[in-house]
């Protein structure tokens, strides 16, 4: 039972990171019906920016904040420069552009920073917490990871629900035609969506890198799990993205915990299994409002 609790708590920490990536994908999907395959690459790049800032300022928090700001800028610039010209064209064009952007960012990271693994500091202690003499399986940093993503998610949710800007974003996502006819500048809203997605990706990057090291491809696996979480939850559903991320994080951690080294090797297979089961039972994802008609 104690082991189960430890694996679950630890899984929640990773799950929140998958949730952040999933949420970033959902934000873009809702606005543009596009899967941003460059999301992981953008997160990796902003994490490199963070590590450079930390190196020069000796301040983790300066790096943390700059990474988030860089994520906002990178997301907005990516949308304005490479995505917008492809919108309204065949859908595959934009998908290929995001793959190209991923290759570009990973290539640039290799050129600027080299391909070697770099350690990334944690903002808090990574020593495991205990309740009495019982190890909880999580550190202060794990708690920070979960709290940071949770707070960011709640802030975004509140913003979407209670502000005019949030209403604009929801209107544009649900019905761009009506939104435009109502005076909402949908193109601008889409840019903001990409900027917020960039912020979430950057957050995931700086939060996961202390556990995974940093290298040009370091976010690829995280992206795959984030993508899986988004599909499980439903690409249309921010709530689904968070719950999908948590579910995936906990299940993968339980698999790793109980199966030992074999579990680590089987993580991707377990994720695939969950994905297949969910897609068979509910193709639109668990929390999506959309309905898929079987033909």
């Amino acid at each position: 039972m104690v082991e189960f609790l430890q694996f679950t708590l630890s899984g929640i920490s990773f799950g929140m990171i998958y949730a952040a990536i999933a949420l970033s994908l959902v934000l873009i999907w809702r606005g543009t019906r596009l899967l941003n395959f460059a999301q992981g690459g953008m997160a990796m790049f902003t994490t490199y920016i963070a590590i450079e800032v930390i190196y020069h300022t000796h301040s983790y928090w300066a790096g943390f904040v700059i990474a988030l700001a860089a994520g906002v800028v990178l997301g907005a610039v990516a949308e304005l420069v490479v995505i917008r010209p492809a919108l309204g064209k065949p859908e595959l064009n934009a998908v290929i552009i995001t793959i190209g952007l991923l290759i570009l960012l990973e290539g640039l990271a290799g050129v600027f920073y080299g391909g070697q693994y770099r350690s990334f500091p944690a903002g808090f202690s990574i020593v495991g917490l205990k309740a009495g003499s019982t190890a909880l399986g999580v550190s202060r940093f794990d708690v920070f990871v979960a709290a940071a993503v949770l707070v960011t998610t709640l802030l975004l949710a509140a913003g979407f629900k209670y502000t005019s800007a949030g209403l604009r974003m929801r209107a544009a996502a649900f019905n761009a035609t009506v939104a435009r006819l109502s005076g909402i500048r949908v193109a601008r809203v889409i840019t903001v969506g990409w900027a917020l997605a960039g912020l979430l990706g950057a957050l995931a990057g700086v939060l996961v890198s202390p556990a995974t090291f940093l290298y040009p491809n370091s976010m690829d696996t995280i992206f795959v799990y984030g993508f899986t979480a988004a599909v499980i939850g439903g690409l249309d559903s921010p709530v689904g993205a968070v719950i999908g991320g948590l579910l995936l994080g906990v299940v993968l951690n339980l698999a790793t915990g109980y199966l030992g080294s074999q579990g680590s090797d089987l993580q991707a297979l377990v994720a695939l299994g969950i994905l297949v089961v969910v897609l068979m039972l509910r193709p639109e994802g668990i929390f999506s409002g959309a309905r898929v008609r079987r033909v």
Binding site: S164, L167, A171, F174, V178, A179, S182, G183, I184, G289
Partner: peptide
Amino acid sequence: IAELTVEENLRIGMMS
């Protein structure tokens, strides 16, 4: 916009 409430639909009208 079916996914929004009646009041939110009305508030959309203020966006112009």
